[in-house]
Design a protein around this nucleic acid. Structure first.
Lengths: 240, 240
DNA sequence: CAGTGGTCTAGACCACTGG
DNA sequence: CAGTGGTCTAGACCACTGG
């Protein structure tokens, strides 16, 4: 039944749980009542209790871990547009990188244009799962002009890519332009990141340049929206 | 029933609609089949059809407009960290600002620290609904040191705030630091923005400085996630 | 008044996990 | 084997809108 000027029951139940988490300062990973518990306690059907938990999950307050239950979430990590490894280290955590795939290939049109490559240039393309203290945080898909970095794919890519570019190829990342938007994470990526299907993500699309203004990297990174925020600085253009 | 190695039915139905929107290049605001139509056509309950549409809505592919139906969404707007008015004008659209409230007050601790104010300083606080061609895009909540801008609240705030600061107070915004994160928009803000309850948003928290490095503005802006992306530039710090 | 999405019920079976 | 979340059914009544 719809109620004029009253909250739907799932909203009220979610509010009660949200308040409990906030006011009692529940630790991350503390269990929340199960859907069946909630439905009994509030005298609603399980679908309605479920709706309340789904709302809290979309807000990042709780996460589900079937078949164990529903738990309080951890707060998020603040990123600068910089080396993932450096950002995680700065927070006193241990960065990780697992190479999912890596190959030399012809770039797609959008990658070619982003890197300013000629029609027959190739790129080193790689995808890595990035983590902090073993917790998956982001999936990075990176494209580097192959001419700039011969043999890159034989290097150890389990750490900072920018460090490899710097130390093995004397290529130094000095500036970047990026676009940040909110997305829904696709199923394969959700599995890799250990989040539920269709979770919210932040898509960071980045072009990185060296001191000569040469494009040295193009990347599309998917961050867990519940674990990341981005810190940016900007110079304001003069008024028109 | 769960099906090993098969998609749930709501995912399959959503995929079919998503493909139709993409492949047939359906125009924004084109109607999608109703929940009852979908349930009949696919031989599922209405709750399952509804689940499919809820998934597409969370992805930004469709929007609901009760009791009219469900429709194809518009693509999003790319913002730089700059004047909202300038950004919208740059795209050839007409910016709008409606003042929701404006008052002089004692700042909260977080606002005071962000602006670097002394304990007894006051701020001009205002909240505005920003739009492009009349379409609501963001809610800006802005704090300006009152000592810097006497009489600000009596000015016309229906346009660019930075223009007022520049022209009436000779205060020029030259740089900003910002944080961008994904949030769920609260109910009151959803109503103002004309989006459904608990929609995804981007929270931009910004400090703006003049040429002397003086903090001239602190703002918390909520953007519709389905309508905005943020373009940023960054200088990469030297390796540690 | 027909049709829409919003909310809700009272069930059901499923895969999966840990004890 | 008890308990969890995931999916699904076949209904219901509601407020609201436009013709």
């Amino acid at each position: 039944m719809a109620r004029a000027s009253e909250s739907p029951r799932y909203v009220a139940i979610a509010a009660e749980i949200r308040d409990t988490i906030t006011n009692e300062r529940l630790d991350p990973h503390t269990p929340i009542a199960s859907e069946r518990d909630l439905s009994e306690r509030h005298g609603v059907s399980r679908m309605t209790a479920r709706h309340a938990l789904a709302l809290l999950e979309s807000e990042g307050f709780v996460y589900r871990r079937p078949p164990h239950g529903t738990f309080v979430s951890e707060p998020r990590v603040a990123f600068h547009i910089a080396s993932f490894s450096d950002e995680i280290s700065r927070l006193g955590r241990t960065p990780g990188a697992v190479v999912l795939w890596a190959e030399e290939r012809k770039p797609t049109r959008s990658v070619r244009e982003a890197l300013g490559l000629t029609a027959n240039a190739t790129v080193h393309a790689l995808q890595r799962l990035r983590s902090a203290d073993g917790e998956p945080i982001a999936i990075e898909t990176t494209y580097v002009p192959a001419a700039l970095t011969p043999g890159l794919l034989e290097q150890d890519l389990g750490g900072s890519l920018w460090a490899v570019l710097r130390e093995e190829y004397t290529v130094l990342a000095v500036s970047a332009t990026a676009s940040i938007q909110s997305v829904v994470i696709d199923d394969d990526a959700c599995k890799l990141l250990g989040v539920r299907s269709a979770s919210a993500g932040m898509l960071l699309t980045r072009r990185t340049y060296d001191a000569d203004g040469r494009a040295i990297e193009f990347a599309r990174d998917i961050y867990r929206a519940d674990r990341a925020s981005f810190e940016v600085e900007a110079l304001i253009p003069a008024p028109r």
